[in-house]
């Protein structure tokens, strides 16, 4: 098997970076959403969830327009910080963060809302702050949801194609991730190469979903027993 591991390594690097960025963004976002009701929440949730139903090319298109050097944002980023997001790894991270946001926020929000409010209130009456309660009571209680969010975000980023292709193109060593490599190999009529990448991604997806199912099931049972 003379496989080029570059695209796979790049996929892993992208998925790890996106997961890290999203846990930092996702926890405060899910926590804030769990504390509000009404139309503002509905609007925010709709915006987050949109990437689940939008064709990735639509998001990719708008990001392409927004980040191009001719746009205000693209030009400002380049002029002030020297950052060129299109066709770069950083651009892939930005696109993937937006595209994978519901996979991080969804499980975290479900988990946080599944906790009885009395646990949070008990912590407050025991003198602990909201931040302390979040990190010492709420997140440990929903650790299966946290793990699900991490694994789904990581896996979804590995499997991304449309957004990545639109923003990053197909630059070897820079933006050619595994899913793009399959397309690229097929385009070159190298079916063997495409098959190798496809098989690895197939096995990866199976293992990831299996982990989520097994972990989620075990932990939920314990939660129900309380």
């Amino acid at each position: 098997m003379s496989i080029d591991w570059g695209p796979l390594i790049l996929s892993l690097k992208l998925a790890a970076t996106v997961t890290l960025v999203l846990i930092v963004i996702g926890v405060p976002l899910a926590y804030s959403l769990s504390r509000i009701q009404g139309w503002s929440r509905a609007v925010i949730e709709t915006l987050i969830t949109m990437s689940l139903v939008l064709p990735p090319t639509v998001l990719g298109f708008y990001m392409l327009v927004l980040l191009s050097p001719n746009s205000w944002l693209g030009a400002t980023l380049e002029r002030m910080f020297g950052i060129q997001l299109l066709f770069s790894f950083a651009g892939l991270v930005v696109g993937s963060v937006i595209f994978s946001l519901p996979f991080m926020v969804g499980p975290l929000l479900n988990g946080l809302e599944g906790i009885p409010e009395s646990l949070v209130e008990a912590s407050y009456t025991l003198g602990r702050s909201k931040l302390y309660t979040l990190f010492r009571v709420q997140l440990p209680t929903i650790r299966a949801s946290v793990l699900t969010a991490l694994v789904l975000t990581f896996a979804h980023t590995i499997g991304e194609f449309g957004v990545v292709l639109m923003i990053g193109g197909n630059i070897p060593g820079k933006t050619r991730v595994a899913s793009i490599a399959i397309y690229s190999e097929l385009d070159a009529l190298n079916y063997r190469g495409a098959e190798e990448y496809a098989l690895i991604l197939l096995l990866f997806s199976f293992v990831v979903i299996l982990i989520v199912r097994l972990v989620g099931r075990g932990r939920n049972a314990r939660m129900n027993a309380i």
Binding site: P116, S118, L119, E121, S123, T125, V137, P140, T141
Partner: peptide, 11 residues
């Protein structure tokens, strides 16, 4: 405060 369902931290 002792809650009706005790509210012990499960983790």
């Amino acid at each position: 405060f002792v809650f009706q369902q005790y509210a012990l931290f499960p983790a």
